[in-house]
Amino acid sequence: MSTDENLRQLDELLLSLPEENEGMLMSEFDGFCAGLIVCPDIVLPGEWLPIIWGDEVTAPFERIEDV
């Protein structure tokens, strides 16, 4: 799968989140990930994933291989 295809799928997943979840757009997600990368402290996925998917929403994939 090409990088463009992966990005398209990620964009679709982000846009498919419920509106009340206040999901991120792809550009927001990009900046958010950049902030995680440059952060001097390790931020565990359990802390930042709920910000992306929302507290009440499970990730929209069933297997880690789908990520």
Rank of each mutant, 00 (worst) to 15 (best):
M1K: 04
M1P: 01
M1H: 08
T3W: 12
D4I: 05
D4K: 03
E5L: 15
N6H: 13
N6Q: 15
L7K: 11
L7Y: 08
R8L: 11
Q9V: 15
D11C: 05
E12W: 13
E12C: 09
L14G: 01
L14I: 10
L14W: 10
L14E: 00
L14Y: 08
L15Y: 10
S16R: 05
S16W: 01
P18K: 05
P18S: 02
P18D: 02
E19C: 00
E19K: 14
E19A: 15
E20M: 09
E20V: 08
E20D: 09
N21K: 04
N21T: 11
N21D: 04
G23F: 04
M24V: 02
L25N: 05
M26T: 06
M26E: 04
M26F: 13
S27V: 00
S27E: 13
E28H: 01
F29W: 06
D30H: 12
D30F: 04
D30K: 05
D30G: 10
G31L: 12
F32A: 02
F32I: 07
F32Q: 04
C33M: 13
A34C: 09
G35T: 11
G35M: 09
G35K: 09
G35C: 14
G35D: 12
I37S: 10
I37T: 12
I37D: 10
I37A: 08
V38L: 06
C39Q: 09
C39A: 05
P40I: 04
D41F: 14
D41W: 13
I42M: 11
I42H: 08
I42A: 10
V43E: 08
L44Y: 12
P45M: 04
G46R: 02
G46M: 08
G46P: 00
E47L: 15
W48K: 03
L49M: 12
L49N: 07
L49V: 06
L49R: 13
L49Q: 14
I51V: 09
I51D: 14
I52H: 12
I52W: 07
I52T: 09
W53I: 10
W53R: 02
G54F: 10
G54A: 07
D55M: 12
D55L: 14
D55V: 08
D55F: 06
E56I: 11
E56Q: 12
V57P: 01
V57H: 02
V57A: 05
V57D: 09
V57M: 12
A59E: 06
A59Y: 00
P60L: 10
P60W: 14
E62N: 11
R63L: 11
I64D: 08
I64L: 15
E65K: 06
E65M: 10
D66C: 03
